[in-house]
């Protein structure tokens, strides 16, 4: 796991959960690069830095299946909960997980 260890200093409302298509993703630009917020088929949401650990591909553009996303550049599958590559690419780096909370249907990203 590669969750950022620091507690967020505040939480920012970035939109409604329904703004993200089911089995899809949206991106949120930040000063340190885009964050991708994913919504899975079973209605869960996850936030990762929008960069594949392989070649930095934009994960927000991948196909979301189960609790995973397949990077559009070279088809690495990334576990949305941990940011870790799955299958044979396991252990080859990790995408940082970004703190995310859902309150009454609104999405709050943690600012660190």
């Amino acid at each position: 796991m590669n969750v950022l260890v620091k507690d967020p200093i505040d939480w920012i409302d970035v939109g409604a959960i329904t703004d993200i298509p089911s089995r899809g993703a949206r991106r949120v630009p930040t000063p340190t690069g885009d964050v991708a917020i994913f919504r899975t088929g079973d209605g869960k949401v996850f936030a990762l830095k929008d960069a594949c650990p392989h070649k930095g591909g934009p994960l927000s553009q991948g196909i979301v299946h189960g609790h995973a996303v397949t990077c559009p550049l070279h088809a690495w599958s990334i576990d949305l909960a941990t940011g870790e590559p799955m299958g044979a690419d396991r252990g080859k780096g990790c995408t940082p997980v970004v703190p995310l909370e859902v309150r009454e249907g609104r999405l709050f990203l943690g600012r660190i």
């Binding site: 920012i12 409302d13 970035v14 949120v28 630009p29 000063p31």
Partner: peptide, 12 residues
């Protein structure tokens, strides 16, 4: 379009 631009200029 990005979901939100509210994080764009947020600083630590």
């Amino acid at each position: 379009n990005p979901l939100s631009r509210r994080m764009e200029f947020a600083t630590a």
